[in-house]
Write a protein that binds this DNA or RNA. Structure first.
Lengths: 325, 325
DNA sequence: TTGTAGGCGTTATCAG
DNA sequence: CTGATAACGCCTACAA
């Protein structure tokens, strides 16, 4: 009974005689032998690992995205190495290198904006990768995403159609977040297209946290003229804004319309329920996972995929009518 | 310039002459050489890996817990292998074995209830572990937790003190979730202690999902006599219940008091704001991470730690007064 | 069907 | 300070 036989009994049972196999299995159980994945991967050159970098799983839209990916990879017999970049470019860089060191066989990234050198690194190691949540202008960077700008335009347009002229925006920090950047650009462009002026005082760039949304709303509600509508590039920010407005006696949607982005489950259960842009987080995760796996196993080239998003109207948006003051 | 020197230049720069080091570093950059973690771990016998099993990171209380652990471990120069058991015992078993196979140096578990054999496995491989979110009656199973029963008792007691007699409970599936079990037990015991009857019709065991909370509330609101208060063993369930009640025209807290469990950030921003049991998720995660690391690095025995929880009263609970019908 | 032996990339040891 | 080499645990030809 050599190590080779034990290895075979465990990995390819059919190649081992029944009685030998049983004897080995019994001994394995008795000694609680657990094969060393490290050695296995090292020896075989296959880790079965896929790396995922998301800004933070603390935001439940990324948690849902992550869960979808994990479920899919688990079904494919692979493992997921999750890492959080915390919207920090330098940290993301370190993490990506660590993933390469860990010999991941594929990588799923969030957002396209990063040092070209990192894409080079992945290509150099022939590690397939796919960008999610946004699409690079560079067609050589495969993306599974939706159209952030179109989605944001729809949201802003919906507010304009409802009679709003003073529309403020709360978005992520555009310098470090390409989705935030795209959404802000879409906001400007849409105002432009409708002949509305862009007012820098109406822009709040914030970290994606509830309290930041509150603070942003507090600032914006002081502006003159006071905005009648808020486009928040993220539901967490929108909920913070909603809370802050309500606490200050600003009625939503009567005095202030608010529209979010993500369509978190909770958007349906706040009061008033939150209008928002529905984002295909789950489909995006599943599609990204499958594309990576197909590329690794069947050598299928990763093609672009653009999923649909749509605006969901709930109670937090209303028509803006001239009212007695 | 041997492989040994390269290894030293990268891992222990101070043991290599400056000019040699510089030459090596230049070549490393030029060739985009990234050392193989697999081989490193394999050779050194150290993986730097800590395993974490949580039911699901889709529940934001576990997301917050996970983030706290990850941040702590990252600061300690270690890596976290996250796995979701999805409240499935068999799956958790497989995952735990996979973690052992991955040669994690420590494991953080959620809940204490699992096959004794699994604890044996960890002990056999001398992998330190710690249980979180609940405490085993077995003192040999180290736990960093809070007192679920005491916390649940406080919540139920608060409702009784406010005049409620018909108090229903929505909790997790007790057969697979020891926290749910403890919270249900605490509910029964508290009713008992106050001379109130236990009514099985007032118990709903549900998966921890928003829609399940809605359905549970729909069922409970049909019961005769209709409960005047709901203790939900999880904020997600509570929010679902809150939403369902509101939609049915049952006013919270006027007609129905609701108290949750977890104190998710969102509990402060729903309408009405949700009373709940605050749980020390972040501290628990940090403490668990540090205990594991100290055990690995300084061979410190892992001792029990019991953190505090407390009831947070917000708007969703009110006194129950006899009212005109 | 089973055993033997080489190799995977790195680290540690020991000699130079 | 640097180089040579064994060892880590497993897999996979290939041989028996």
């Amino acid at each position: 009974m050599s190590v080779a036989t034990v290895s075979r009994a465990l990995k390819k049972p059919e190649t081992v005689a029944l009685h030998t196999r049983e004897r080995i299995l019994a001994l394995v159980a008795q000694h609680r032998y657990v094969p060393d994945t490290l050695a296995t991967s090292f020896s075989s050159g296959k880790t079965g690992l896929i790396g995922l970098i998301v800004p933070t799983i603390a935001n439940s839209i990324y948690a849902a995205f992550t869960v979808a990916i994990q479920a899919r990879l688990q079904a494919e017999g692979r493992k997921l190495l999750i890492a959080n970049s915390n919207y920090d470019t330098a940290l993301e860089r370190d993490i990506l290198i660590k993933l390469v060191e860990s010999r991941v066989e594929g990588v799923i990234l969030t957002g396209f904006r990063r040092d070209a050198e990192l894409y080079e690194l992945l290509r150099h190691y022939r590690i397939p990768f796919v960008v999610t949540w946004s699409t690079s202008p560079d067609p050589d960077i495969p993306a599974v995403s939706f159209d952030n700008e179109a989605a944001a335009e729809l949201a802003v347009e919906a507010l304009i159609e409802r009679g709003h002229r003073n529309i403020a925006i709360v978005c992520g920090i555009t310098a470090i977040n390409d989705r935030a950047d795209q959404r802000l650009k879409a906001y400007r462009r849409t105002l432009d297209r409708h002949g509305l002026p862009f007012n820098p005082d109406y822009v709040q760039e914030r970290l994606f946290e509830f309290r930041e949304g509150e603070r942003a709303a507090e600032v914006l509600l002081q502006r003159e003229p006071r905005p009648t509508a808020l486009f928040c590039a993220n539901d967490i920010l929108a909920l913070g804004a909603l809370f802050a407005a309500t606490r200050q006696g600003v009625r939503v949607p009567h005095d202030l319309s608010i529209i979010g982005f993500d369509d978190l489950p909770i958007a349906q259960s706040v009061y008033p329920t939150l209008s928002t842009v529905h984002v295909p987080a789950q489909e995006m995760g599943e599609a990204a996972a499958m594309k990576i796996v197909n590329c690794i196993e069947k050598n299928k080239k990763i093609t672009h995929l653009r999923l649909e998003s749509r605006v969901v109207f709930r109670e937090s948006t209303d028509f803006h009518l001239k009212r007695d003051s």
